[in-house]
Design a protein around this nucleic acid. Structure first.
Lengths: 147, 147
DNA sequence: TTATAGCACTTGCATAATGCAAGTAAAGAG
DNA sequence: CTCTTTACTTGCATTATGCAAGTGCTATAA
């Protein structure tokens, strides 16, 4: 591409999103079969590195995991750093933007727990969700920020 | 496959889901790039037939729309019926299971409105979400049940 | 200091999902 | 009877995902 074309195309950048609808923004950010499972593992399972994510029951494949981690980092939902105790290890953590998905994830879990007859969602967790969602949010959020 | 094999394989059915995790149930039910946009149009845009869904800004293609409508119906999130005023038309409506996605969708919208600088989410809607989510849920839910 | 293992990926290729354009069938309107 | 609307289906190209194997760093033990 020569300079003039480059300038012209820089003037109308290819639109990043299909629309400016908030639902669509969410879908384009984490709307695939894997992203939210990684967020889940970070949020509820205390996992924070590549090999731990790989161990998840749903069996994500290595290339997809790598590409999702990169996408989530680019979207600002997670951060990547080197484990100070082991330079061979990377540490993935939820950013504030990622942590703020907690209320949505809890609603999602509540819905699934209600409608999936085979749900693995612990009964006490479901109950706390119904009874006192706000304190559950506060509590989980504190745990995440501490780490 | 001969009869004996058929019987044996019918004894251990291929597992329907990757896991019994509630997040995963949600993902396998509506976790793709399009399902929630259809739910959105049913829930907030008053759309209820094929050609209206096709008009959405995100430009779903006809075969994908048909397959998503079928999937959502099979999952029990929507119902399909014939328009009594026009036998050529089908009417899609949210079931209770579909309507119950409202709280999750509102959290999703709140998150996107907060983090997407180009969000199209109306300010007053965002505000009502922050100020009084519960009455917004009650109000929207009433509208959906009436139709 | 070499060997072995762990960790975080990458690569190549097969399969599946999605996207696009065109076509079809049934119903309604004129 | 014809034209339009509606709700799709079909065929094919492109993209995303899945699977197995390999790579290149640390780290750790001999």
């Amino acid at each position: 591409m020569h300079y003039a074309s480059a300038i012209i195309s820089s003037m109308k950048p290819t639109p990043k999103y299909r629309s400016d609808c908030p639902i669509n923004y969410a879908l384009e950010t984490f709307g695939d079969k894997w992203s939210l499972l990684i967020i889940r593992d970070l949020m509820f399972q205390g996992k924070n590195n590549y090999s731990e994510f790989l161990k998840a029951e749903e069996k994500i494949s290595t290339n997809i995991l790598a590409s999702r981690l990169e996408k989530l980092e680019r979207a600002g939902l997670i951060t990547k750093s080197i484990d100070p105790n082991n330079n061979a290890k990377k540490v993935y953590l939820l950013s504030e933007k990622g942590i703020d998905l907690l209320p949505m994830l809890l609603e999602m879990m509540a819905w699934s727990a209600h409608y999936d007859e085979h749900t693995g969602c612990p009964v006490e967790f479901s109950n706390q969700l119904k009874e006192d969602k706000q304190s559950l949010i506060t509590q989980l959020k504190r745990q995440l920020i501490e780490s």
